[in-house]
Design a protein around this nucleic acid. Structure first.
Lengths: 174, 174
DNA sequence: TTGCAGTTTCAAAAAAAAATGAAATGAGAC
DNA sequence: GTCTCATTTCATTTTTTTTTGAAACTGCAA
């Protein structure tokens, strides 16, 4: 209840508020878990949570202050979020800081994730499959046809994935 | 070329063969990367690769010998693969060891992954959202409606995911 | 320019995740 | 039932990932 009308050091930002903190804490946990399921660092999810919830765009310093993380973590986390286009960068004239706001369209978030994370994975997979085909064991006829069948199955998976990816982004409605 | 006709210690298994090794090495890399993209341990992918490629079912000892991993890693990896129903257990009468063969139907692999990994995540997410709704900041009217809008968006995502999951498994063709 | 706030980088530290292997457990051959 | 060997468990070690923060860099305001 301390500073309802007395901002802490910056004019326009609200001070500590226990209901906001509890609410934000849940949101951070929500996104942290989501990030981890996608194989991304927990801190990435937390940074996104803070930007997602904020009514105004935030600068890096705001994020550091809210999450008590280091400069390095914030900088690298924001870099990744930018790469995934999960945040947009805004420039304020007369202020050299970068401000961030969240991309909140699930359709776009998924589209960028597919393009930045899944597609490269499929491409790398495809290289492994090419290498496998070049090294098909010569062994005996029975074994060879077994390996060939397995490889064919993997190639089928990879092709299916490659064809599907561009379509999924379009199918998403929300 | 050493032991083309002289199995190493077990009658029915082929000995070292450099073309098989190179082929399998690529397959292990393929599945290791795939596992990591799904947030699963690399060793899980490698174990699956070995079982997936093997013409015969393998026992744990076979896997340990092929991958040079410890008993504990093999046991825990197989436990997870069983949980995901990515491998099936076979019993051979008169042999107390368990033998494993791979589930190779992508449709089923995806279905089990959705059920065992994604669905619980959505459920947990849903709890966080409930907690958020119970803690909606009371602040001023403008802020409150902003938070409410954000929360509604997350709830919409979660519902979409929950509705989608059972359908995806059916849509998969391969 | 020049100075400096804002940002990035990166070597080192900390934390988290995974692997190890010996001891405990347990299933099934005998 | 007993004994053996396959498997599980789990405290410890190793490896990998993430975080930290100080130094280098950048580009804008003055």
């Amino acid at each position: 209840m301390a500073e309802l009308n007395s901002p802490p050091s910056d004019l326009s930002r609200p001070g500590p508020d226990s209901t906001v903190d509890a609410f934000e804490g849940e949101a951070r946990a929500y996104f942290a878990e989501g990030a981890q399921m996608l194989g991304l660092p927990k801190s990435l999810g937390e940074i996104y949570a803070v930007v997602f919830l904020s009514p105004q765009p935030l600068c890096m310093e705001d994020i550091i202050r809210k999450l008590h993380i280091s400069l390095g973590t914030a900088s690298q986390g924001l870099r990744q979020l930018r790469r995934l286009q999960a945040v947009r960068v805004l420039s304020v004239p007369g202020d050299r800081r970068d401000y961030y706001e969240a991309e909140t369209e699930l359709r776009r978030l998924i589209g960028h994730f597919l393009a930045e994370v899944v597609a490269p994975q499929l491409q790398s997979g495809s290289s492994h499959l090419d290498a496998m085909r070049a090294r098909l064991p010569e062994a005996n006829v029975v074994a060879r046809s077994h390996y060939r069948r397995r490889l064919a199955k993997l190639e089928q998976w990879n092709r299916a994935g490659t064809r599907l990816i561009p379509r999924i982004a379009k199918w998403i409605r929300i």
